[in-house]
Design a protein around this nucleic acid. Structure first.
Length: 231
DNA sequence: CACCAGGCAAGTA
DNA sequence: TACTTGCATGGT
């Protein structure tokens, strides 16, 4: 397993190392195209991925996984296709809002849209009704390959359970914690977020009996060695 | 049958 | 700013 940072070792490097040796390459985000990643990011809001897969399969079967088709389809038709992912009426609206943004800002050219600078792209995504920080950052990182860390429910649980964060930490503070203590490495951001989701699913569910087998038992965050040795 | 899953926006105090 | 609620399906 590869070390990420050659000279500066922090508790987050250790976190990544433990998870990487447990899981191997993460292979995230699941999706055959950037559009599929973006659609998945909306559909998975507060929803099990298994349900999202059914909805995406429906879209593929209907040949609806393209900007043009999604732009032309009516809400009812789209809602019917994505029904298995739950919240289908509001998610149909959100998908249409996102497609409208791509049409308006980039003439429907997805590559051009995703090629915008990170802060521009993120700001545009956040202006869409139905796209919040987690969804926007997921699209920026996994579809647009921009260096930004994604914070989700599993990330919050991890930071809380390991005594790093408390209930006063909001999304921005958690995101800054990772980005301030990791090298700016897109692949690292992608893998570490994926691993955090894996570990949450595998060992950290409510009353999970496998909690005692979690590879992160015994891991505690510490500041960088530079900080420790310098004090 | 109850509970939950990779959020978000709108409303209330 | 800090809660609360609606949105909805499918798996356990």
């Amino acid at each position: 397993m590869n070390k990420v940072v050659p000279s500066l070792e922090t508790g987050l490097d250790t976190l990544h190392s433990i998870l990487a040796s447990h899981y191997g390459p993460s292979g995230w985000w699941p999706g055959e195209s950037v559009l599929e990643i973006m659609v998945g990011a909306i559909l998975t809001q507060n929803t099990a991925w298994s349900n999202v897969e059914k909805a995406i399969d429906n879209l593929k079967s209907a040949n609806a996984l393209s900007i043009d088709v999604l732009h032309g389809i009516d809400y009812e038709g789209l809602a019917r296709l994505i029904r298995p992912s739950g919240y289908y009426n509001i998610k149909a609206r959100r998908l249409k809002n996102l497609i409208s943004l791509i049409m308006e800002t980039s003439g429907g050219n997805l590559e051009r849209f995703l090629g915008l600078g990170l802060s521009t792209l993120r700001g545009l995504l956040l202006s869409v009704k139905g796209v919040g920080k987690e969804t926007a950052d997921s699209i920026c990182l996994y579809a647009a390959d921009k260096p930004i860390f994604v914070v989700d429910a599993y990330t919050k649980r991890l930071l809380n359970r390991h005594g790093i964060a408390d209930n006063t930490w909001d999304y921005d503070r958690m995101q800054a914690f990772f980005m301030d203590n990791l090298p700016k490495d897109i692949s690292l951001y992608k893998d570490l977020h994926a691993y955090i989701v894996f570990i949450g699913k595998d060992f950290c569910r409510r009353n999970d009996p496998r909690c005692s087998a979690c590879p992160l038992n015994g891991w505690t965050y510490r500041a960088s060695l530079n900080t420790l040795s310098g004090s």
